[in-house]
Design a protein around this nucleic acid. Structure first.
Length: 867
DNA sequence: GAGTTTGAAACT
DNA sequence: CAGTTTCAAACTC
């Protein structure tokens, strides 16, 4: 759809077909009278407002996605010239909308009634509702249409809300007008600060919205179908062309103009996105241009705002994904600015249909500044409080799964965006995606230079890029691909398809691989900690609080390297070999095969059920082998009474897999949570490193950032999760300051939240992490103390039944020996177990690819099965 | 930098 | 599941 000018897009009701109905006072009245809307779960509301009800979880990912898309959309006004419509103004308005959407969604989430959604969305589907908004944004670059849509949203709301919204709308209009005026005066922020965007804006392109439109159509809206189709066609043409050996440079020629525009749009889209999200600020900081968009009546400001203030480095949250492929960037923001940080994840949780997710298509220059990530899920919107005092700015972070709030320490670092983190699973190998400083010089690196840089990265800070030649970076051979990230500038790969512009293909390939091996993209190194049980238990289990207990999930098969070289993945990950390894002549210095079995008795292959709970154990999952990111389940012996930990019994199927928290290997659901954690904890995910961080920076890739999640040793008396810094002797270090980025429960769903009566444990320097799922699970557990599911002993059969919506296996933990840990723990564990079994399967897809309906169906089936 | 070695990934 | 091939990183010179 072409949008020559805002004027060309007259306000219509195309995207708001049901508007007339909802516009009717009767409808609004009825909506307001909806008794369901007021229905709340008191316990949840009181104790865990952030936990709230499942709807929050249900909506969160998509909401965020949509919101993210909204933000992205802002940057996608290809037809909007600076002279006609200020992107700023529109963006501003979008921010308002998105913000209000958030509010709206929260309200929706507050209600356990699906009817509310009906009220909110003309189609009864929240996604649809949001999609509509998106369509409006994408298809109608007209203020009026947006306003109209905005008003549409308000139809079912209270008069106060409507009134407030109207005010905001008016403000938005005023803002736009103002910005327009400013723009006419040559103050266009985008143009001034983001040359790429400027270019993008100059491109007359009608299908720029393809990606988003895809997602839109995915949820049933056909408004953007045309664009999506066009884009897809263009994309395929492009891809085919490239696949046939044509380089990008030669692509333009053979393609029709429209396709070329698409192609260009693909690039610019990403460029603009990035500019909006990261690059924008970066450009500004780099360019030192300080154009400020006046925000008359709002606290919200555009990300492009340049407020003379101390830059704040905000770690980007890790992406969300079972495979832990996430990227964390530190973004420098300023008070009063709103930073939309996106992280990505893909694969395990979401592959199908994720193409719709806008992707930060890396601009060549962007690659050096931040790592592209694969289709993503997590979006972080950080709002720096203008009024923040001291050294901390309150940053609200929202991700697909959470909206944590954490504090950020302003930094004077000149680095705008640093690296991201790849939470890949191979230690050094697939660990850090990229730690690149915003160096423009880097952008100019030539191929050899790239190669060099790649090597340097891999050698220097643990981050590396691939050098694939034949795999097109679409196989696990490719470290980037395996890590769930797009190849970037530092890569020296040839014929690479692991780029945002080939998102569809990437996803498709990834899906294919996952179909073969669901854990293909899962962390490969799992850490396990065997903790000394409490004295009360009377067990004298040798404390095995050692990170060395980490093991490669699959084990190696080395024959000649004796596991003493990096050929060995175990060795490379700095973990010892386990019985699961099939290596020959193992001499792994981190632990030889056969030597490792700190809890062998616990995970007795022959008696897995009995052994599982023999000792207080915790499982750690090393997201990235070299300490890039660790998600660990651990026991906080210092904080709470020992609690039975999860059992990672595999029922004796595979010793090597027994301790692996993966759903595939474990009968415990935690694995799933564990996998999820990285995504959930994105905001906190440490990681980030840039050249300035070096090794001194606790967050650098060289330093392990252990995010500790004690899902097992939840303090059930205080309803507080046990957290403890994992004393990794090899990476022992206090929780880095940046760890404070983890939500402290200030409304952030990422933060662990204890019961209303119990504050979240505040460990010095320790941030509590919680993922929404867990929140919900806990919520469920707290609400229902009699989990029937517990009555079902953990049996393989049960385990099989239980699976996450994303098809990840979620297995119930064994509770056979819970009694050994005391009734209190037992209760808690049961609760936890219950919630796991009950809630996890019920979870809506954490990814946009899974239709909530299917989940509902699955729930239904699960229920029927239980019966 | 080129060539070799190695073992994971992919394929059959 | 095992054997073979492909692949890219690790390694050596």
């Amino acid at each position: 759809m072409k949008m020559d000018s805002p004027e060309s897009s007259k306000p219509t009701t195309t995207n708001c077909e049901t508007a007339p109905v909802q516009d009717s006072p009767v409808f609004s009245f009825i909506s307001n009278l909806s008794p369901i809307q007021s229905v709340r779960a008191p316990p949840v509301t009181q104790g865990f407002p952030e936990l709230n009800s499942p709807p929050l979880v249900f909506t969160s990912p998509r909401l965020n996605r949509q919101r993210q898309s909204t933000f992205l959309k802002r940057a996608q006004f290809p037809r909007v010239s600076a002279a006609n419509l200020s992107a700023q103004g529109y963006e501003k308005l979008n921010i308002q909308l998105s913000t209000r959407l958030d509010v709206c969604n929260e309200k929706c989430s507050d209600s356990n009634s699906p009817e509310v959604d009906l009220n909110e969305s003309p189609t009864g589907c929240p996604e649809q509702f949001l999609t509509d908004i998106m369509n409006v944004n994408s298809n109608k670059f007209s203020n009026n249409s947006t306003l109209e849509k905005h008003e549409c949203q308000n139809n079912s709301r209270t008069s106060e809300q409507i009134e407030a919204d109207e005010i905001h709308v008016l403000e938005g209009v005023a803002l736009i007008e103002q910005v327009e005026n400013e723009t006419k005066q040559g103050n266009g922020v985008f143009v001034d600060h983001c040359p790429d965007i400027e270019r993008g804006l100059s491109v007359v392109h009608g299908s720029t919205n393809c990606a988003e439109e895809d997602s839109v159509t995915e949820v049933g809206d056909s408004v953007g179908a045309e664009q999506a189709d066009l884009s897809d066609q263009s994309y395929h043409l492009l891809f085919e062309s490239i696949e046939t050996g044509k380089e990008n440079e030669t692509l333009t020629e053979p393609f029709p103009k429209e396709v070329q525009n698409d192609r260009e749009a693909f690039q610019h889209r990403g460029v603009r996105r990035r500019c909006l999200q990261f690059g924008d600020a970066q450009h500004k900081i780099v360019s030192n241009q300080s154009t400020q968009i006046t925000s008359d009546n709002e606290g919200l400001r555009l990300s492009s705002l340049e407020t003379p203030s101390i830059p704040i480095k905000i770690p980007k949250p890790a992406g969300i994904g079972l495979h832990l492929n996430s990227i964390v960037n530190a973004v420098q923001v300023r008070p009063g600015s709103k930073v939309n940080v996106r992280s990505s994840r893909w694969g395990n949780l979401c592959i199908v249909g994720n193409k719709s997710m806008p992707v930060n298509e890396p601009h060549p220059s962007d690659y050096s500044n931040s790592t592209s990530i694969l289709p993503l899920e997590a979006s972080v919107s950080a709002i720096i409080d203008d009024n923040m005092h001291g050294d901390h700015a309150s940053v609200g972070v929202t991700s697909a799964m959470s909206m944590p709030t954490y504090s950020v320490k302003p930094s004077n670092d000149s680095i705008v965006y640093n690296s991201l983190e790849d939470q890949s699973t191979l230690g050094n190998k697939r660990k850090c995606i990229e730690n690149v400083v915003a160096s423009e010089e880097f952008n100019k690196s030539s191929a050899p230079k790239k190669r060099m840089k790649s090597l340097e990265l891999s050698d220097g800070d643990g981050c590396k890029r691939c050098n694939c030649r034949k795999s097109k970076c679409l196989k696990l051979y490719c470290d980037c691909f395996a890590a769930g990230i797009y190849c970037a500038d530092p890569c020296a790969c040839q014929g690479c398809f692991n780029k945002p512009k080939y998102e569809d293909m990437v996803l498709e390939t990834r899906q294919k691989i996952e179909s073969r091996d669901p854990l293909a993209f899962a962390p490969r190194v799992v850490k396990r900690v065997t903790e000394k049980p409490s004295s009360s238990l009377g067990e004298d289990v040798t404390t095995n609080y050692t990170p060395s207990s980490a093991r490669h999930k699959r084990g190696c098969k080395c024959k000649k390297s004796m596991c003493l070289k990096k050929y060995c993945e175990c060795y490379q990950s700095n973990v010892g070999c386990s019985d699961g390894c099939r290596c020959e002549g193992c001499q792994n210095v981190f632990g030889r095969k056969g030597d490792f079995c700190p809890t062998k008795d616990v995970f007795n292959e022959e008696h897995p059920n009995e052994a599982a709970n023999t000792t207080l154990e915790t499982c750690e999952m090393t997201v990235s082998g070299n300490g890039i990111n660790h998600i660990e389940l651990f026991d906080a012996h210092n904080l709470t009474p020992p609690t039975p930990a999860f059992q990672f019994s595999n029922h004796g199927k595979d010793a090597s897999k027994a301790w692996f928290p993966s759903g595939e290997y474990s009968q415990s659901p935690e694995p799933d949570l564990t996998y999820m954690a990285p995504h959930m904890i994105s905001p906190g995910s440490p990681i980030n490193s840039d050249n300035n961080n070096n090794n001194d920076d606790p967050l650098s890739s060289e330093n392990t950032q252990d995010i500790l999640l004690d899902l097992t040793s939840f303090d059930h008396e205080s309803h507080t999760p046990n957290l403890q810094k994992w004393a990794d002797n090899s990476k022992s270090q206090p929780f880095p300051e940046k760890r404070q980025l983890y939500p402290q429960g200030g409304g952030g769903s990422l933060g662990w939240r204890g019961s209303p009566n119990t504050p979240v444990p505040q460990l010095s320097g320790t941030k509590l992490i919680r993922d929404v799922e867990f929140d919900v699970l806990l919520s469920n557990s707290f609400q229902d103390e009699t989990p029937e599911i517990l009555k079902d002993e953990s049996t393989p059969a049960n385990a099989v039944k239980v699976c996450s919506p994303n098809k990840k296996r979620v297995s119930p933990p064994h509770v056979s020996r819970q009694h050994e840990f005391g009734s209190g723990s037992l209760t808690g564990l049961r609760t936890g177990r219950k919630f796991i079994l009950k809630a996890v399967p019920s979870f809506p897809p954490l990814t946009p690819c899974i239709d909530s309906r299917s989940v509902a169906v699955q729930q239904k089936n699960d229920r029927s099965v239980k019966k």
